[in-house]
Design a protein around this nucleic acid. Sequence first.
RNA 1: GUCCCCGUAGCUCAGUUGGAUAGAGCGCUGGUUUCCUAAACCGGAGGUCGCAGGUUCGAAUCCUGCCGGGGACGCCA
Length: 622
Amino acid sequence: MSIATEPNPLLKALIARLAAAAKLPQEQVAGLLRPPPKPDMGDYAIPCHALAKARGAKPDQVAIDLAAELALDPALKDIVAALEPAGAFLNVRVNGGALCAAILPRIAAAGAAYGGGAEGAGQTVVVDYSSPNIAKPFHTGHLMTTVLGASLVRIYRALGYRVVGVNHLGDWGTQCGYQFLAWQRADPQEREKQLAARGIDYLVDLYVGINAPAKELAELKEKLLDKNVALQPDCRKELETAIAALEPQVAETDRRARELFKQLEDGDAELRALWERMRVRTLEVLQLSYDRLGVKFESTDGEGFFEPFLKPMIAELKQKGVLVQSEGAWVIELAEPGAKKKAPPFIVVKSDGATKYETRDLAAAIYRKQTYDFAQNLYVVDVRQGFHFSGLFKALEKCGYPWAKDCRHVSYGLMQIKEGDATLPMTTRGGRMIPLSELLDRMVGIVRGIVDEKNPTLPSERKAAVAEAVGVGAIVFWIQARRRNSNIVFDWKEATNPDGDTGPYVQYTHARACSILRKHGASIPPNAQLALLAAPAEVQVVKALDEFPRVVRDAAREYEPSMLATWLVQTSRLFNDFYNSHQVLKAESEALRDARLALVDAVRTVLARGLALLGLGAPEEM
RNA sequence: GUCCCCGUAGCUCAGUUGGAUAGAGCGCUGGUUUCCUAAACCGGAGGUCGCAGGUUCGAAUCCUGCCGGGGACGCCA
């Protein structure tokens, strides 16, 4: 157990004495200890049901006996303020000042590293996240994986793990052929300009544009086949004519696109250079948005990178006998012998001989194990691909890789955006999608208006920095404020509500703490009498800070950054309560002022740290 | 049809390794600025924790069945 997760000295002593009195191992007592339902009932409670069995007495009596026994313990004299049996529970109220004096120095000593640890030393975690497809718009769905993945990277890194963030770019497939073809047809100067300025958005335009006739054709055919609509003969004829006119054109485009992609696969130098250029430029433009989110990848090996690995892998798997032929395709059978319903196989090579993204995922997983020797391999991908990943992991198991159990699909729900009274899905059919940069800009613009209103005297460049941190933070926090599997609706107005469970609320609380320290000017006195911090509001805040290291670990274990967000809001609320009811700079005495300054400094440190782990900035004023 | 996720206050959600009287925010409503940022704080109203069984001293939490919402399910990614 690292220092950070060890109970604070006071709690440790309490646990030791409780364990001795109850004649139980300390770990068990530590596990039983919990906060009472209401803070005014005490600081820690121990349920006595389990103890009652061992003692052969009623739980209520055990609580009473234990209280009497502990009251006589000299080691607890300065620690415990009250021992109150309440039914089957024993409530312990500790000496608040002593508790603060036990907790705050640990935070001051750790500083910005508080909450972190070294338990991950020597272990590697691979996090596959963001991973946009270059034929599809980078929209709010990618924002989810990017935000969640980046937080997991930071959280695991804080715990001492070596973390490899991978942006597994969807940069391979027939789509490339379509994009090449559209590129060839585009004006040479215009296309350069567009690619340089818009990156992936331009590639998507190319793909969508050249696919428009095919899409139209598909829609016409659907209309013709729709049994629910009775078509007039002349209308039917019209449809048939339109289809006949489109069909050769679409077929020709498809043929040429496939041909171009085949050429790329076969190593055509010119196409390869173009592909590389598109890929690099896409990443460069994306990085502009990534920078605003504080995201940086260790690897950008996309699907194309794994192309050379596929043939050898397929050959090896065939030789091993894992890859078998089924209905013309090469598959890994996943069906369990005794299962009621036959699970579909994992298709590695299509019946036309082409590979699929399953093939590349398989190769990528093997590559990652060989290259990084991960302890965990995480895929931050939306929940709809759950079936794919369970298949992938089972397939890896069938291939005989024991590390298949270390792979995990970190799923998340869908995000929609609220516009007025309407709720728009991020992938509207035919409707325009909001590009990421635009989403961020709009939010920052809204926040800039609030800053202008609330803090007009702030210099302009400071305003801009605050608006950026708070605007982007509002979105980033909103996404992480609920458990990742729930579907979320983004609400422009609510996300910036400083009274709500929002990023701006936490950031504002942090700015308040900074403001006090700034007004104080001088450095924090190092040897404050922390035991003076005995008011309930003070003790509640310090106890919350004490919880932080555990919350970081829970968030890592559950892959749930939302746990940090929840903690940040709760702690902010407690601090604001303290702020409102107690003066710091004009405290009753200098000694009390110094102690409160230490508390404020600790709050500032830990809130900033928590925000940073979630990818939010922490402006010192706003 | 099979599998996965979800169902808690009018709305958005915490709480789920089983523990006491189920908590926040929004919205509604009443109050707090000679005081460190009122982008704040405090109070009030608001609940058959989807339904029904079961396990347990104890269930929002675990098990079974059902209802309702979303998603996936052999050659798209």
